[in-house]
């Protein structure tokens, strides 16, 4: 027990009889009010920039008019949602969003493989250099990343097409062929995030007890078998937590890069829910309708997060909450 609690209880002892619960709280507050002052800026920030927009979500169910404001605009129920579900682009948007995200999810094991591979490197200098290089692209901005992709894939001057031409192929205008978009998006993401994604697994691997490996090698287990039976089970809890987190942002991965790589010709496979919300909401000022589309998107995210968490807890015992 610490000093303050002890003093506090001693104090409570003398006049406990006359003290009500409210008085205790008040007294406690008088002692700790400065802590609440320290909390105040963050409390205010979250109230204004997180909870007020949450209240503003109601415009998804209203016919928002700037002159009447959020509160004064008339309710119209689920009209915006209906319009979205019935629109001709609904299927395309859902499909594109799913394709990009499922494709990305399929590559979820790659950073794990890289971490397992790093972990087997014995030469410390090589390991250090290898890690420094693979982490570096993480710090490149989305705009520069998109700029590099556009420059490299240029059919006339781009690096990739120069390579194709050296091997006798014909240049491919990658960015204006819709079918290529998913590959460009997902693999440029891997180039940038692979090394960084491995860090957390490397940390988990560093916690593996070396005695386990020694014992296993004495018993004649090969490197591969030791990785399979010792390292992989050791990092499994980390893998599951990260998988749940990925699922929680399933529908909203990387739309800022999508927006930069998208053009009129690849639109049929590059338009995802969030870029649509940006375009119809902020460029065409259809606030209510776009808010409804955005709300639909975040509802799917919450449902996926809760479901994945539930499944993970039932099957593996690991979960976020």
């Amino acid at each position: 027990m610490n000093t303050v609690e002890a003093l506090d209880q001693a104090g409570q002892g003398t006049d406990r009889v006359s003290q009500s619960a409210i008085a205790t709280v008040l007294r406690n507050f008088r002692r700790t009010w400065q802590l609440y002052v320290l909390l105040l800026p963050a409390l205010l920030y979250f109230f204004i920039l997180h909870y007020i927009p949450l209240y503003g979500v109601q415009i998804a169910f209203k016919d928002y008019m700037a002159t009447k404001g959020i509160w004064g605009s008339p309710w119209i129920g689920l009209d915006h949602f209906q319009r979205f579900f019935n629109s001709y682009y609904f299927k395309d948007l859902i499909r594109n969003t799913l394709v990009l995200n499922v494709y990305g999810l399929l590559l979820f094991p790659l950073p794990i493989l890289l971490a397992l591979s790093f972990n087997e490197v014995k030469n410390a200098t090589f390991k250090k250099w290898a890690q420094t290089i693979t982490y570096a692209p993480h710090f490149i901005s989305t705009v520069v990343m998109a700029g590099m992709v556009i420059a490299f894939l240029d059919p006339e001057t781009g690096l990739i097409n120069s390579i194709i031409k050296v091997f006798g192929g014909n240049a491919i205008p990658f960015l204006i062929i819709p079918q290529w978009f998913k590959h460009i998006f997902v693999w440029s993401g891997q180039w940038q995030g692979l090394g960084w994604g491995a860090i957390i697994y490397l940390a988990a691997l560093a916690g593996v007890n070396p005695d386990l490996h020694d014992a296993a090698s004495v018993d004649g287990a090969s490197r591969i078998r030791r990785i399979w039976h010792i390292n992989i089970p050791a990092i499994m809890p980390t893998v599951i937590i990260l998988f749940i987190l990925t699922m929680g942002s399933f529908m909203s991965i990387g739309f800022e890069k999508v927006l930069l790589l998208q053009n009129a010709l690849n639109m049929s496979s590059s338009d995802v829910i969030q870029t649509f919300v940006y375009r119809s909401g902020l460029l065409q000022s259809e606030y209510s309708f776009s808010a409804a589309v955005g709300l639909f998107d975040s509802l799917i995210n919450v449902v996926l997060l809760v479901l994945t968490n539930l499944v993970a807890r039932r099957t593996t015992g690991n979960s976020l909450w």
Binding site: H50, G56, V277, L282, L305
Partner: peptide, 22 residues
């Protein structure tokens, strides 16, 4: 309670349009 007040915003949010309007 205060911790939840903060953490809740990781799961639910107003989204792009309400934030922009604010």
């Amino acid at each position: 309670l205060i911790m939840w007040y903060f953490l809740l915003t990781m799961m639910i949010g107003g989204g792009l349009i309400p934030t922009y309007l604010l």
